[in-house]
Design a protein around this nucleic acid. Structure first.
Lengths: 235, 235
DNA sequence: CGCGCCCTTGACCAGACTCAATATTAGTGG
DNA sequence: CCACTAATATTGAGTCTGGTCAAGGGCGCG
């Protein structure tokens, strides 16, 4: 598969000691009934309501979770990156549908096996808490941000170590960045709670203001990352 | 404190065996540096950005988590009920502010103690996954539902075992219900991603259509629960 | 009784949606 | 490599939902 800048760059397990982290890792990979699955772009992994007998982890690539309303409205509730766990609901049926966004490798694990490993729980726990925090952030976006702010925030997710609270600022004089969305306008719209037309209009407006250049639809060049960041609503 | 119908009625730990559940419980209560705090309505517990040295659990009452944008926009990202854990971020600072919504009792625990108990991790884990699912549901509300649908969905949270997938349906001929919001219009608006005026208008519209009666501002009588439910967008 | 806080209502406005036409891109086969 | 097609994206015009601003009402509490 092609190299892609993911929307949610993986962060290291700083709060986990090296030995804990390693232990958790080997538990994962050596577990019984655990195997890797290679997916092409836009392949279904499971559907909302299916019995949840297997738990998954993104090894490489990106996966989206979405929910549908009966009249067809769709909301992408999360976009998962490497090391993210998914398909592990509180009860025994999946609460969302899951689909690969890019070409991806995922690890499929037997749920009973996962639940039988005590050491693994610390690891899962931390992953869940990180996802919860990401979702809190997204809640603010959906509840309180304008279309322009939503798209700006979305673009900033593709720039590692920028935006958010611990923003490093521009490293030198140059502060440009190139990203590959790896999502259609429809998927972006469904993630940001907008329509495809609004997403398109905002991107065009950003282009007009020379904040970005659009190359081949899903390749976006950001002239100055800081200028985009100023429009995310968090400054 | 007064008796209140909570927005998120506690659900039992069906997937946890009785012994596991009991073990986790006794771990909680007998833990060192663990104590109960009684709160009046609308008392701050901690603020976004504070160092996260203590983890909390709602024992009784309701607690809200919220985030602020620098220009003052507020989003209530979660409303917690009995048995919900909070104040346990992936890193070492709180990612939200926490405040009691009603009079409440919370359990304050030393984070290091919490993290040292292996058996506790299963318990925490399950709680986190349930919160994640609730947040997925809320994401759909914020991203894809109309003002009317949001308020209807909000009201349905106060009715136990109704709405959602496993809806029991009306038990007999009568299908009415009385609820106490225990939230101001502003808090409801900040939770639903609306303005106070819109919330007020939708409630008035529901009154006009005789779907509800409003008694004393935060007491709402639902004539037929099913009629409200039809407007949540999930049917 | 009167003050203050919250809630409701109205008039107007704006941002985002809908519907429709056109443009661009990616994919396919000659 | 090019032509053709299907899918996706852009743009425009008009509408509508929900936001803004402002005035008035209700309720609790001292």
């Amino acid at each position: 598969m092609t190299h892609v800048q993911h929307a949610f760059p993986a962060v290291g397990g700083e709060n986990l000691s090296a030995s804990e982290s390693e232990q958790a890792w080997s538990d994962f990979t050596q577990m019984q009934g655990c195997h890797l699955i290679e997916l092409r772009s836009h392949e279904a992994i499971y559907y909302d309501g299916d019995p949840a007998s297997r738990v998954y982890e993104v090894v490489e690539g990106a996966v989206m979770l979405y929910k549908l309303l009966p009249d067809g409205r769709r909301q992408v509730v999360d976009i998962l990156k490497s090391n993210d766990l998914f398909g592990y609901p509180a009860d025994d049926i999946y609460d969302c549908s899951a689909e690969s966004l890019t070409g991806a490798t995922i690890r499929s694990m037997d749920r009973a096996q996962v639940e039988s490993r005590a050491q693994l729980q610390f690891h899962l726990n931390r992953g869940l808490r990180r996802q919860l925090q990401d979702l809190h952030e997204h809640t603010v976006l959906l509840g309180r941000k304008s279309a322009f702010e939503r798209v700006a925030s979305f673009l900033m997710r593709f720039v590692p170590n920028r935006g958010g609270n611990g923003c490093a600022g521009p490293r030198g004089k140059k502060d440009d960045w190139d990203i590959v969305l790896a999502m259609t306008r429809q998927e972006i719209a469904d993630f940001l709670g907008l329509t495809i037309e609004t997403v398109s209009r905002v991107l065009s407006e950003m282009k007009r203001r020379e904040l970005i250049r659009i190359e081949k639809q899903d390749r976006i060049y950001m002239r100055r990352v800081c200028d985009i960041c100023k429009h995310t609503g968090i400054h």
